[in-house]
Design a protein around this nucleic acid. Sequence first.
DNA 1: CTTGCATTTAACCGAGTGGTTATTTAACTT
DNA 2: AAGTTAAATAACCACTCGGTTAAATGCAAG
Lengths: 113, 113
Amino acid sequence: MERLDHTFAALADPTRRAILARLALGEATVGELAEPFEVSLPAISRHLKVLETADLIVREKRAQQRVCRLRPEALKTASEWIEQNRRMWEERFDRLDAYLRELQGKENDDGNG
Amino acid sequence: MERLDHTFAALADPTRRAILARLALGEATVGELAEPFEVSLPAISRHLKVLETADLIVREKRAQQRVCRLRPEALKTASEWIEQNRRMWEERFDRLDAYLRELQGKENDDGNG
DNA sequence: CTTGCATTTAACCGAGTGGTTATTTAACTT
DNA sequence: AAGTTAAATAACCACTCGGTTAAATGCAAG
C-alpha cells in the first residue's frame, strides 16, 4: 500500500497534526494556518504540500489566496489499516491468553511443572 | 502527544509494517524476521529498535536469541487519534453538507443567487 | 503597467534515516 | 578456554526532512 506511507509519514509530524486540528474547525488560508505557529510561511507551505500529497487536504485557489480544506477519506485508509491490525493482534493475544490458561489447568491436573 | 510521533513514523515505513504483519502471525526471532527481506540483518535490527521505541513491539532475550512480540496497546493510541479526528472531520462535512442544502432551499424560496 | 499582497519555489544548512560492511558483545557448545 | 551462533553497535554514505532567507510567481487594484 503506497498511500499509507504518505499518510502515516504526514501524521508523524506534530506541526502537521496541529494544522489538521486547526482545519477540523473549518477551512483556512495558508496565512491563517501559519499564524499560530512560530515557523516561517515557506515551512508551513511545505507542510501543506506534504498533507496534500497524502490526500489529507486539498488546496483551492480563491483570489490570491489558497484555501485549505480537509479530506476525511484519506484518514479512512490509515484507520482501516490500524483497525485491521489491531483486531489481528488482539486475536493473537486472546489465543495466547487462552493457551496460557490451558497450560495452567493441565499443570493442576497432573501435578508436574 | 509525544508518542504519536514515534508510532506514526514507525508505521510510515513499509518494511516495518511488513515486520508487524509477520509478527501478527506469531512471535519471531530477529533472524527469522530478517529472512524474508532482502536487507541486511543490521538494517532489520534497527527497524526493530524503531518499532520498540514506538512501543509497537517488545524484544525479549531467550538464550542467544531475541524474540520479538507485538504490543497491541501501542496501536490503540494511534487508532484513537485517527478515529477521534475522523469523527470531527466528518461532523464538519455533515454540517457543511446541511448548510449547502439549506442554501439550495433558500435559493428556491426567494429566487436570488 | 506598476504596486502590493499571498503563496510558492530556490538554494542552502544541520539533523535524521535507511542502507551498507566490519567489528563487538553475549550466550551456548565443545 | 576456544569456537560458534545471534544480534547489536560502529563507522560510513547517500538521501530526505524541516527549517531558514531570498527570489519568483499569481492575482487584484490603483
